[in-house]
Simulated scan of single mutants.
Amino acid sequence: MREADTPAGSPTTGGRRVTQETRTLPAHAPGAVETPFVIQGYEEVVAYDTVWNDHSHPFHELLWNERGASSAIVGSRIWTITPAVGLWMPAGTLHSGVAAAGTCLRACFFGFRTTASISDAPVAVEITPLLRLLLERLGEPELRRASRAATEALVLDVLAPAPRELLVRLPSSPLLRPIADAVREDPGDRRTLTDWAAARGVGPRTLTRAFTAETGTSFARWVGAVRAQHAIGLLTRGWEVEAVAEQVGYRSSSAFGAAFRRATGLTPGAFRPS
């Protein structure tokens, strides 16, 4: 657990106030631990900024949030998980995670031997009103066995990869990694691909080809995803929309709002604490 000074009234450990919690979980192979459930729900409101180490589960996992946002990291890929778009994590997939204080985490665990994976790799899942309703029903403590089995079957039937995901792939080449690090450090940096090409001593076409090859998307779309991920973190901490828009490089809150909705499917206000 990492400790640092925080405002008066925060919990303390050893005379210092806690602001971040680090959780260590084991790495399990798929099916390594018997799971006597078909679908089992989990919910938690994290009190502090929380970091999970690299770990893997013996069961499949569906992650989403009731409010706030979190991120899951698999290798060079970073997904932001929101109330609208969750993430399917297949059993045995090594991943780490982060969540901001106050985030209400939701998850469902799917028995490895009793359910099939919807994907062999992590994939975004749209948390539709129907899926949410079914998952809420599974949380009812008095649900009869037959009703539970029917509801679980419906959940498995409606689960499907989402048409969009808030994913950032990090390039690793010496040409692109300094650019990626600079943009992630300051998403408000307005330098264009042409500006970066000049700074790296290559032509714009070279940089375009390299970016597409390493990230699977264009430089502009990649920057937009980085900005959306960063904006979500600021919004969940209570920043005003106008301040967030400026911080992540948009000249107006309306331009930011439109770009944010395209990336997340939600308005910026959906992530501000109520």
Rank of each mutant, 00 (worst) to 15 (best):
D5H: 13
M89H: 03
F109L: 12
G224Y: 05
A182K: 01
L159H: 05
P174Q: 01
L235I: 03
W79F: 08
L105H: 10
W52M: 08
L134N: 05
A225R: 11
R17N: 06
V168Q: 02
D54Q: 14
M89G: 07
T13Q: 15
H95G: 09
T267Q: 14
N53D: 12
G203M: 07
S76M: 10
R77A: 15
E3W: 11
S253M: 14
L266T: 01
A270C: 10
T194C: 09
G92W: 02
R200I: 03
A198M: 15
D5C: 12
H57K: 05
S254V: 14
S173R: 06
S252P: 08
T212S: 12
C104W: 02
R67M: 04
F110S: 04
D186S: 15
I39D: 07
E44D: 11
I179N: 04
F271E: 00
L159T: 02
D186G: 07
G75V: 00
A220M: 08
T19Y: 12
V51N: 11
F211D: 10
T151A: 04
T80K: 00
G9M: 05
A121V: 11
L193G: 08
E44P: 01
T264E: 01
V125C: 07
D189H: 04
R145P: 00
L134M: 10
E43I: 06
T215G: 02
P58H: 12
P187D: 03
A162R: 00
L175M: 10
V223E: 01
A245L: 11
W52R: 11
L170M: 12
E61G: 07
V183C: 05
A8E: 06
A149N: 13
R77S: 15
E136G: 05
L62C: 12
A213E: 14
I81V: 14
D189Q: 07
H230M: 04
A160K: 12
Q247R: 15
T12S: 13
R144A: 14
A270S: 13
H230A: 14
A245N: 10
A121M: 05
S76Q: 15
S76P: 13
A263S: 11
S147T: 15
F109V: 09
E21S: 15
G102E: 04
A258P: 04
H57W: 02
G14L: 09
A180K: 07
A180F: 09
L25H: 06
F59D: 11
T264H: 00
P174S: 10
L63W: 14
L166F: 00
H55R: 02
A220D: 15
V183I: 15
F37R: 08
A182V: 08
F110C: 08
P58E: 03
I81Y: 02
P11Y: 08
R200P: 04
S254W: 14
T24I: 12
F211P: 10
